[in-house]
Amino acid sequence: MVGAEFGFYIDPQRCIGCRACVASCGECGTHRGRPMIHLDEMDRFASTQTGPTVCMHCEDPICAQVCPADAIKRSEDGVVHAAQKPRCIACSNCELSCPFGVPIIFRGLEQMLKCDLCYDRTSVGHRPMCATVCPSQALLFVRHEELAGMRGNRPLREFEIGALRITTRNAVMVPDPEIPLNLDASLLCPEGGR
């Protein structure tokens, strides 16, 4: 069980795009050889911005709600696990419904895999692989009380997509966490999509 005193804090502003997190994620025992962290480039031509995405571990995970095989479980410590191997039928519902674009369906394996907060490590008191190797600490796994002395920003766990509100275990760092972060696609495509 992951200690309730620990939190995972994401500070995309600090990401330098080194991909150390991607390389180390593949070392995790629960999905060995397959990195589950996503590292996206925002606009390669105009900006150096890169962003790491791990599972946010929603309080009421949509991936689990839409899973027809009832294969996705959230443990008592708030960690949403990858689909259970005996049950997952690789229907893609979770991949297509995750608000943050996290799960990956592996054809052939017929299974969904996703970040499970390196449960083999965090359940025995170690930090997740990505947070261990991140040189700029864009990915941070620390005790809640340690965070205040380390960052000017504060953790935000509330997100909005239109009228949909999502609360997560993991947090992103912002100056004003009282206001939910509105994930609005018009930021990428103001004119209304294709």
């Binding site: 962003g51 943050f100 994930l183 696609a185 990428l188």
Partner: peptide, 14 residues
């Protein structure tokens, strides 16, 4: 698509 969902979060954050 999942990639655009992730980029939306990054954009909203920045």
């Amino acid at each position: 698509c999942p990639s655009c969902r992730r980029r939306t979060l990054m954009k909203a954050h920045s």
